[in-house]
């Protein structure tokens, strides 16, 4: 059965293969990109990349579906042209977060179609008063085992005849990693044509606006997604800017809190001369509870971070959370809809 999507849908979810087919249908050549007609799409592509890499965010407004759809492959090309793997990751993540925001508000029928087309996952819509869909236990397990909160455990789900009941926002959360991977793989497999001058210029402009690439060590500990407050401190560190004391405390307690070792956390900090490693180690071990009071410090609450001016709340991803550790894992509860 062929799945049909409208132009609007493709603009929202340009990673769908149907969107790719649409662009192919336009049979554009790289040379065409010089023409004035395509400047708006290029402009939007540039916006996409800069937003994504600077703020981990891509706006969801769609002014003109055509332009939006086209801007996606162009953006992939731009990021690829920058030629740094780290930014490809960061960009893919931002695209998946954008899709996540849109999916949260999406019609059930479209969600089903997207899941079928992009992930080959069959969703069955339910009239359950808490849950929107059920999915096969296998499709669920393959993905949910990467989450460690109790509410994702199979035993805490409603499981019936091989199906697991899920809410839309849970479903969307389950697929974040996959969307990210689809975007990343697409970019990875892209072969760059000889790039026209006007695009080279755009790539140069973008490169100037990019944050510095974090050290190898940091990339290893931080391949995932962190709350905006943590991202902010990481960025300050990377840019070599002054990090407030409380920001360091947040970073250290957060990474210890998600299970990183003392050594891994120490590696997050750059090895500049004024950061004598001994001092850093001392502080990290202190927070880990290996020194002094032997009490492991908790990650400060969002409320505390707000008062320190360190909160950069994301309306969707930080919704209903009280502590950065809960970021991206909204609790499942059995409260009824409405």
């Amino acid at each position: 059965m062929k799945i049909e999507f409208g132009l609007e849908d493709l603009a929202k979810y340009p990673f769908l293969k149907e969107a790719g087919d649409y662009v192919k249908g336009l049979s554009l050549s790289i040379e065409d990109l010089r023409q004035d007609d395509y400047q708006p799409a290029l402009k939007r592509a540039k916006e996409r990349v800069i937003e994504a890499i600077q703020k981990n965010f891509i706006s969801i407004e769609i002014l003109e579906p055509n332009l939006e759809i086209l801007s996606f492959p162009l953006a992939l090309m731009l990021v690829k042209a920058i030629g740094i793997d780290y930014f490809m990751h960061r960009y893919s993540l931002a695209e998946s977060l954008r899709a996540e925001r849109l999916l949260e508000k999406e019609k059930k029928s479209i969600i089903s179609n997207i899941f079928k087309s992009a992930f080959n996952v069959n969703l069955i819509s339910t009239e359950h008063d808490v849950f929107d869909f059920k999915m096969s236990m296998i499709d669920y397990l393959i993905r949910a085992t990467h989450f460690h909160k109790p509410e994702w455990k199979l035993i805490n789900r409603i499981v019936e005849k091989g199906f697991v009941y899920v809410k839309t926002h849970e479903l969307v959360r389950l697929m974040r990693e996959e969307i990210r991977r689809i975007v990343y793989e697409r970019m990875k497999s892209l072969s760059l044509p000889k790039i026209p001058e006007n695009i080279k210029e755009i790539v140069d402009e973008i490169s100037k606006a990019l944050p510095p690439v974090p050290s190898k060590e940091l990339q290893e500990v931080t391949p995932g997604m962190f709350p905006p407050c943590v991202m902010h401190v990481l960025d300050l560190l990377q840019k070599g800017q002054n990090v407030p004391h409380y920001g360091r405390f947040l970073l250290t307690s957060y990474f210890l809190g998600i299970g990183k070792s003392v050594d891994e956390v120490i590696n997050i900090y750059p090895k500049a001369p004024d950061f004598s490693e001994r001092l850093t180690r001392y502080q990290v071990e202190h927070i880990a509870g290996m020194r002094g009071g032997r009490r492991r410090y908790k990650v400060p609450s969002c409320r505390t971070l707000i008062t320190h001016g360190l909160c950069f709340k994301d309306e969707i991803l930080c919704d209903r959370i009280k502590n950065p550790l809960q970021f991206g894992r909204k609790p499942v509860n059995f409260k009824k809809k409405n």
Partner: peptide, 26 residues
Amino acid sequence: SLEGLDQLARNEISDYISGMGFSLES
């Protein structure tokens, strides 16, 4: 179709059956 499940997924299945990790909230 469960044949391809990895160790983590089987762990969830075995916890489900043996009642491990049940939370009152659920």
